[in-house]
């Protein structure tokens, strides 16, 4: 059997479309070094889409092409070559004409982003699944019930 995929959308993105994807990821979540936050282009969104959003993944190339075409119409340049501000403006137009594509991309992006080790650490978590270690939890001050006790029983008598 040939190893050539039967449909083009099974192919990884071309280099140029990867650049477009990275460029859009960067405007969804840019880096903020002061907080230790990487940009979304630095986390494995591409891989995540492949593994977890196969329905969407199949449409990605066409949609990124459309985004790039839109950049060309507005600025006569590839999307990836635009400034952050210009990219935002192109995306804004596309959010009106084709809202589903970018809304879904943003949702999948934050989903992947907030599972990344660096991001988890930056938001104050350990980069691991919750189990088996769990968390140290602060028990709290149970003497706060005193005023409730002082008001006495409130259950309704039936007999």
């Amino acid at each position: 059997m040939s190893n050539t995929p039967l449909i083009a959308s099974d192919q990884p993105l071309t280099e140029s479309l990867r650049r477009t994807l990275d460029a859009v990821l960067e405007i969804i979540i840019p880096a903020e070094p002061a907080r230790g936050m990487p940009s979304a282009r630095e986390v494995a969104v591409f891989r995540y889409l492949q593994d977890h959003a196969s329905d969407y993944w199949r449409l990605l190339a066409t949609q990124l092409d459309e985004l790039d075409a839109s950049a060309f119409r507005q600025f006569a340049q590839h999307f990836a070559d635009l400034s952050l501000d210009e990219r935002m403006r192109v995306a804004h137009v596309m959010r009106n004409t084709n809202p589903g594509f970018l809304r879904r991309l943003a949702l999948e992006t934050v989903t992947c982003y907030y599972q990344d080790d660096r991001v988890m650490v930056a938001v104050g978590m350990e980069p691991r699944p919750p189990a088996p270690k769990g968390q140290e939890a602060y028990a709290g001050d149970f003497s706060l019930v005193e005023p409730v006790i002082a008001r006495g029983a409130i259950w309704r008598r039936t007999e």
Binding site: I27, I28, P30, E32, M88, L107, V110, Y114
Partner: peptide
């Protein structure tokens, strides 16, 4: 909620922006 569901819900509501203000 945890970070992923916090972000997804806020994005869905249109509350979590793209760009510099995201963080």
């Amino acid at each position: 909620r945890g970070p992923v569901l916090t972000a997804r819900a806020a994005l869905w509501r249109g509350e979590l922006p793209w760009g510099a203000n995201h963080h």
